[in-house]
């Protein structure tokens, strides 16, 4: 029998809640030290103290701002480059091998180079995030455009659509679902890259809280920061999906639910 959405979410929460409860009991009863992995209540206390004192929000704003700007530049560049490369086979043959080579570089390997070129402040961080976001969006756009059903394009030809109209009325709606997937992937990577960027030298941000927690021996702060990252990432992803939702209504019933 199909479960309702709320029942399905509730089932998913059972395991983490049980584990949290078990750990809480273990620490309280003295069976576990709770030094390296604090019990949930202590993590919660740390987090709410940060929030109430107002200290949390500048960090959230700093991190979210970096991700936002980096995503904007990276996704924008990925979109434009991807569209250009799918439009012109010559261009694709020219730039794709180079881009694939650059893509093979592990993300963290860029950090020392960017720090050297762009300094230790915001530019280097945003550039790092933009690089991380660029590749999945670029690849996703090319895949989406090259995967468009030729038969649908022929419908546009039959109705003598100008290239601009063809792009607007057929190409764009056709790639929108895959584009959303590419953007969500890029955004996810953006959050990953911001951790790397803030880890390597920041005076504020959720990643800074991570480093600070490690250096001062505050595991509850580390885990609190991890939870904030998870929450922010989920919110950002939800926002992106919500932005695209009005244009993807036609897919809803297609998935059967």
């Amino acid at each position: 029998m199909p479960l309702r959405l709320t029942s399905r979410s509730a089932l998913g929460l059972i395991l983490p809640l049980l584990l949290a409860l078990a750990w809480e009991i273990a620490v309280r009863s003295g069976h576990a030290a709770g030094r390296l992995l604090p019990p949930p209540t202590r993590i919660w206390t740390t987090l709410s103290a940060l929030a109430r004192s107002g200290d949390l929000w500048p960090h959230v704003a700093a991190t979210a701002g970096r991700v936002g700007l980096g995503f904007g530049f990276g996704a924008g560049a990925g979109l434009v480059t991807g569209l250009a490369a799918s439009w012109s086979p010559l261009l694709r043959r020219l730039i794709d091998p180079t881009l694939q080579g650059l893509r093979a570089v592990p993300s963290l390997a860029w950090v020392p180079l960017f720090l050297l070129w762009l300094g230790i402040f915001e530019t280097a961080k945003i550039a790092l995030i933009a690089v991380g976001v660029f590749f999945p969006v670029y690849l996703g756009v090319i895949g989406a455009v090259l995967g468009i059903d030729r038969k649908i394009i022929e419908v546009g030809r039959i109705y003598r659509l100008t290239p601009l109209r063809l792009a607007r009325r057929i190409l764009l709606p056709a790639i929108l679902p895959s584009l959303l997937v590419a953007l969500r992937t890029g955004l996810g990577l953006g959050w990953m890259f911001v951790v790397a960027a803030e880890y390597m030298g920041a005076s504020e941000g959720i990643g800074y809280l991570l480093v600070d927690g490690q250096q001062l021996g505050k595991p509850d702060q580390i885990i609190a920061a991890i939870l904030v990252f998870a929450l922010l990432g989920k919110l950002a992803d939800g926002l992106l999906v919500a932005l695209f939702k009005p244009f993807l209504r036609w897919q809803d019933s297609y998935r059967g639910g």
Partner: peptide, 19 residues
Amino acid sequence: GPHPAIGLVFQEPRLLPWL
């Protein structure tokens, strides 16, 4: 090239899924 006076029906309906 395609002409406004000509209509065409293919073997598949080829309806645009987003409309």
